[in-house]
Design a protein around this nucleic acid. Sequence first.
DNA 1: GTCTATAGTGCGATAGAC
DNA 2: GTCTATCGCACTATAGAC
Lengths: 191, 191
Amino acid sequence: MRWEPGARERLQESALELFARNGFDQTTTAEIARSVGLTERTFFRHFSDKREVLFYGQQELVRVFLEGIEAAPAGLTPLEVVAASVQSAAAFFPDERRSFSRTRQTVIEQNPALQERELHKMGALSEVMGQSLRARGVTEPAATLAAESAITVFGVAFAQWISEGELRSFADIAADVFRELVSLTGTATSL
Amino acid sequence: MRWEPGARERLQESALELFARNGFDQTTTAEIARSVGLTERTFFRHFSDKREVLFYGQQELVRVFLEGIEAAPAGLTPLEVVAASVQSAAAFFPDERRSFSRTRQTVIEQNPALQERELHKMGALSEVMGQSLRARGVTEPAATLAAESAITVFGVAFAQWISEGELRSFADIAADVFRELVSLTGTATSL
DNA sequence: GTCTATAGTGCGATAGAC
DNA sequence: GTCTATCGCACTATAGAC
């Protein structure tokens, strides 16, 4: 057989390992490709750029977020809808995944270019969530504010979830953070 | 005189022009440097990478945000503090600047790499705001949530401010968006 | 200020799956 | 035959090293 199946997955797995061991900048795309028996050119067939090898596959996460919005019963407020969406996305972060997520996040945090890519992905997620809310009839700027708030809560909850010694489930943490957000804005009177 | 002063500013101005006219990817760093009588090497002495030429100088914006937080009277809620901070940052966006901001934003929106850099800058701003809030005694996760909410409101307000036909001041728009955020979270009951 | 490694592109060739 | 994955090669621009 000329090529083993699952080239993309093998590249992703090996890349994370190499980045974690030697650093992102110190790892060349040719090296990643070679490590799984492929050439650099093939690497770039699968990933538009070097960073993307760490992010490819997040469409699934986006899908889960959107399903959460679409499944939410009518009559909920926009913030309640996105809270349901984050809860639905929690399925993506079972406890078995904590260790993998920690490794990946460590790599990302050590490189500004990777942080930029991550923020961009989160921004894109926020945008499609906003669209989905508008499709439900939520008007602007409420739709964008709710979507961005969801991403904020998600980010804070995720950071907590992978922090040293944390044992609660992602879903539990996210619910707590949502309550914090509501109480935060609820106490503001002079606006 | 061996070199004209203001090299950095001239590079920034000319770069924006070239990007707007010919596109970001189609403009090389050598071209930008040549356009103001400098060499590519000098370009990279002023800016750590090509994208940075559009973002250098935003420390001032950060400074204004932080001053707004520090100047806020004790006793305000965290969200009220960051609202004051955004109002103080509004000084950065007088009506005369709308046209420049529109051009710049058009360039950024046409290039994913530039969007990434912008999001990263906003993320950095959010982080220092969070720090400043914690220095005031705001605890986690409230500090991070308030800072992120401020960035969200800022972003929504900015987009509205540069939109076609908008005439209100940045400060007025931002105040409205803040009220929208509060009413959004205020109506959520099932959390 | 010069030199160089690496990222990333464009185009064409080849090999296998169907 | 078509379609898709892979490879080879030449090339430019960025960015960092010297």
